[in-house]
Every structure is written in structure tokens, then in C-alpha cells.
Design a protein around this nucleic acid. Structure first.
Lengths: 196, 196
DNA sequence: CAGAATACGTGCATTCAGTGCAAAACTGCA
DNA sequence: TGCAGTTTTGCACTGAATGCACGTATTCTG
């Protein structure tokens, strides 16, 4: 559990990474739609069929590390004091995660470019985010000690993610944009104080 | 332009509607995934190939009337006084649209059930909503007289849609939930005043 | 109302994603 | 070295979606 252990694990990890590298390269050169899984597999030196034991779909390959992000958000939220107002806790958590994004800017930009050019990948990313919303909602529900009849947890989760998404979009598409954590903070602030 | 005119148009409309009816029925009875386009076409009395001249995909069939909703939102927004604060205008617009939803409850519930059971339809709906977000953002930008360097329009558009989505979700999944327009109003209010 | 122009439905072939299954290859360990 | 468990791989198959060409129904023009 601590060390990567055997050669088997190591190989698997390596292949997975290579698949990702090779595929991203092909996507950028040929376009996502014009790249077939057969080509990717061939370029990575594995059988076509094997591709699917590493990634469930072509879309998922692009978004391979997406699930980590949810974990980071929940993790940050866990560290906030229980007495802190939820909205403040969310703001702090998302700002912290935004800092992560900032430090991986190149990685993010690469995927974002593919997403922007490929509707199915984009749709898939939204779907994953909806999963985050659900998880966040549940977490907030326990935090607020409310039942499913209280709309607040979902409202907060949905809104917080909307702020994050809007900030990210702005940050990625606007030249000379402020740093992402700042955008996120401002976004949360904006909603919490005055709306014009 | 005023009247439906020719027989051609009439037939097309009728076929489209029949496809929708027949398909929804099949989806509910057999499940979305287990229903093939071939079956739908056969049940509607057309050739398989012809299906695709009516709907671009199986997903789109379920969400056929989705684009109207964006039009309604923008339309409502258009009617708000230009001097009104944007957030208030959004709240009023979405509340009005929520009333539409309320009156079509059965229609909505039917599609929602399919969405909930079929990831691809759900993903598609999110994708369409992202399109709304873009349109709303642009509309708000002109309303606020700002350029693309101001994150506000996108922030407001994304947040407003999040409130709408969260309210809808709550309304559809919670027994004895308040009316949708009320939920929406409260959601907007909640964000504009105090966040706990 | 006849015949030309056009739009629409349809069949066919094809590409490609994704899945199930069973055999073969490989790894880790005794 | 040989055994047990896992992974890779090939093969066959389903089903969505697209391109193309042909025939038929509709609309327009005179």
C-alpha cells in the first residue's frame, strides 16, 4: 500500500501514462474525432482491445485525473472548522483547490483545448462535475445537519461549483486574467455580499 | 411564415411528434439503452435511416424541446427594465420560466426519469445548458456594458443556471416540495442576502 | 393541368466505439 | 521449474452515426 510494489503495478502505471501521453499528442495533432482508438493503441504498443482495460472510453482518457479533484475539494472542506459558516468553508476550500489548478496550468490548458474542440469530452466533464455536485451536496448536508427536504446543501454545492467553473473558464480564456484563486475568492465574495 | 402551409411541413411535424411519442414509450417500457433506433423507427413506421433526418441522435430526441427553454429565458430577460440590477432581472426571469416548468410538470418528469437512468442523455442535457450559459453570458455582457475582461457576466449566468438546476432537482426529487417558482426565488434571495 | 425543379425518404455500405468471451501470455511465488 | 492468478489479446458482434445515390412525392411555373 505504501510502495508501488511489484513489477506488475509498475508496468500498468507506466502503460497508462504512456497511453495518455501518446493519445494527447495524437489528439492535438490530428484532432480528437479523427483519432481512433486503434491508432492510439498502436502508437502506445498495445492491442486495441487492451485500451479498454485502462480507460472506459476515449473521453475518459482525456479526463483521467478528474476524480482526484473531487477528492481534493472534499479534503479541503474536511479541514475547515465545523463551526465555520458553510459558505465561507466552501470559499476557502475552492480557493485552495484553485491554487492547485494554477500550479498545473499547462496540464489543465492541454485538456481544456481538447474539451473545447470536442463536444463529447466536454459533455463528459460536465457529467463528472455533476457527480461532484452530488457528493458535495451530501457532505454539506451532514455538515449542516439537515435532511433531504432542505434545499440549501444542493443550492450551495451547485453554486460553489458554478463559481469555480466560471472562474476557470474566465481564467483560461482571458489574456492577463488575475490568478485563479483570486478570481474564485472574488466570485464567492461577490455572491455573498452585493449583487448588481 | 404565419400558417404551417403545405402538406410537406404538416407531415414532417406529425412524424416528428410521432417519433417522440413512440420513442418515449419504448424508453419507459424497455429502458433507454435497450431500445435501438431501429426499433423506434419501426414502431413509428419509418426507415431507420430516416430517423436521423429528424433527430441528430437518440439523446437529442429526449431533449427535443430543450432549445425553446433558452429562448424563453432570454425572452423574459429582455422584458426586464434595463435599469434593473442584473441579479434581480435574472431572478425575475428564471422565476417566470420556472412557472412554465411547473405547468408542464408531467412533461418534465417524464424526460427527467429517462435522464436519471441514462448517463448519455443526462450528459447531453448538461451540454445544452452550457450552451445556455454562453448565450446568457453574452446577453448579460451587453446589458452590463462590459468587455470580455469582466468576469461578472459569466459568473452571474453560471450561478443563475446553477440555482435553477438545483431548484429543479430538489423540486423533482423531494416529496411535498414547495412550488418551483418559489424555490427559485428563495434560491436567488438566499445568495443575494445572507449565506450561512 | 402538365412537366420541370426540388425536397424528402430510403436502402446500402461503411466507420468506429464499446462489450463479451475464451485462449494465450505473462508475472509472482513456492 | 512449475503452478496459480492476472492481464493481454484476438475475434465476433451490436449499435450509433454518416455519406452517397436513387427513386418517389411535392411544390412551383407556365
Amino acid at each position: 500500500m505504501a510502495e508501488p510494489t511489484g513489477l506488475r503495478e509498475r508496468n500498468k502505471r507506466e502503460r497508462r501514462r504512456r497511453l495518455e501521453d501518446v493519445a494527447l499528442d495524437l489528439f492535438e495533432r490530428e484532432g480528437f474525432d479523427r483519432t481512433t482508438i486503434e491508432q492510439i493503441a498502436a502508437a502506445a504498443g498495445i492491442a486495441t482491445r487492451t485500451f479498454f482495460s485502462y480507460f472506459a472510453s476515449k473521453d475518459d482518457l482525456v479526463l483521467a485525473d478528474y476524480s482526484d479533484r473531487l477528492a481534493r475539494i472534499l479534503d479541503q472542506l474536511e479541514r475547515r472548522p465545523a463551526a465555520e459558516p458553510s459558505w465561507d468553508a466552501l470559499r476557502a476550500s475552492f480557493a485552495a483547490v484553485a491554487a492547485d489548478y494554477e500550479s498545473e496550468a499547462e496540464h489543465i490548458r492541454r485538456r481544456f483545448a481538447i474539451m473545447a474542440s470536442s463536444p463529447s469530452v466536454f459533455a463528459r466533464s460536465l457529467q463528472l462535475q455533476a457527480g461532484w455536485e452530488q457528493a458535495l451536496t451530501e457532505r454539506l448536508r451532514t455538515r449542516l445537519h439537515t435532511g433531504t427536504d432542505d434545499p440549501t446543501p444542493r443550492l450551495f454545492a451547485a453554486t460553489a461549483l458554478a463559481v469555480m467553473r466560471a472562474s476557470l473558464q474566465h481564467w483560461l480564456t482571458t489574456p492577463h486574467a488575475p490568478a485563479l484563486p483570486e478570481l474564485v475568492q472574488q466570485g464567492f465574495q461577490r455572491l455573498a455580499t452585493g449583487l448588481a
